[in-house]
Deep mutational scan, measured.
Amino acid sequence: SLEELLKLARHALRHGEEIHVLDRVITDEHEIKRLIEELERLI
């Protein structure tokens, strides 16, 4: 769900981890922040 993805993204950002989204691995902090902003808009 989007909520789950948002939780994962926030966790990854906090802990400096990578996040796997739709067969992509996002490691860049700015990309993760952008993902979080997009998800928050959708929810």
Rank of each mutant, 00 (worst) to 15 (best):
L42W: 06
I19H: 02
L2I: 10
G16K: 13
I32H: 01
V21E: 03
A12C: 03
E29D: 08
L8S: 08
I43P: 01
D28F: 06
V21S: 05
L22C: 06
L2S: 03
L35Y: 11
R41W: 09
E17L: 15
K33F: 08
D23H: 05
H20Q: 12
D23E: 08
I19E: 00
E38K: 13
S1F: 14
V21G: 04
K7Y: 06
R24Y: 08
K33N: 07
R34A: 15
A12I: 03
R10Q: 12
K7W: 07
E4D: 12
E29K: 15
L42I: 10
D23I: 02
V21W: 14
L8F: 05
E38G: 07
E4I: 11
E40W: 04
A12D: 01
L22T: 07
E17Y: 12
T27D: 07
E17Q: 12
R24N: 07
L8V: 06
E31G: 08
H20W: 06
E38T: 15
D23C: 03
L39Q: 00
R10K: 13
L35D: 00
D23V: 02
L6S: 01
L6M: 04
L2W: 12
I32D: 00
L13V: 09
V25Y: 08
L6A: 02
R34I: 13
K7V: 09
K7S: 09
L2H: 05
I32R: 01
L8E: 11
K33R: 14
R34S: 13
V21P: 01
E3A: 06
K33C: 04
R10W: 10
K33S: 09
T27V: 12
A12K: 04
E3V: 08
E31A: 10
R34P: 01
A9L: 15
L13H: 06
I43Y: 05
L42T: 07
E4H: 10
A9V: 09
L22M: 13
L39R: 00
L6R: 02
I43A: 03
E29P: 15
V21L: 15
L8T: 09
E38N: 12
L22S: 12
K7T: 07
R24K: 11
V21F: 14
I36M: 04
D23S: 03
L5I: 08
E18T: 14
E17T: 13
E31P: 02
D28Y: 05
V25Q: 06
H20K: 14
L35M: 08
I43H: 03
I26A: 04
L22H: 13
E31Q: 10
E29W: 12
L6H: 02
D28L: 10
R34C: 05
I32W: 02
H30I: 12
D23G: 15
H20T: 13
I26T: 03
E38I: 15
H15Y: 15
E38H: 15
I19G: 01
T27F: 10
E31F: 05
L13G: 03
R14G: 11
I19C: 02
A9R: 00
T27K: 15
L13S: 07
D23M: 03
L42D: 03
A12Y: 01
E40R: 05
R41Q: 10
E18P: 15
E29M: 15
I32A: 02
E3G: 05
H11R: 09
L22F: 12
K7M: 10
D28A: 11
E29C: 03
H30Y: 13
D28E: 12
K7N: 11
L39V: 07
H30N: 15
D28C: 05
T27W: 09
A12V: 03
R14D: 15
S1V: 14
I43V: 07
L42Q: 10
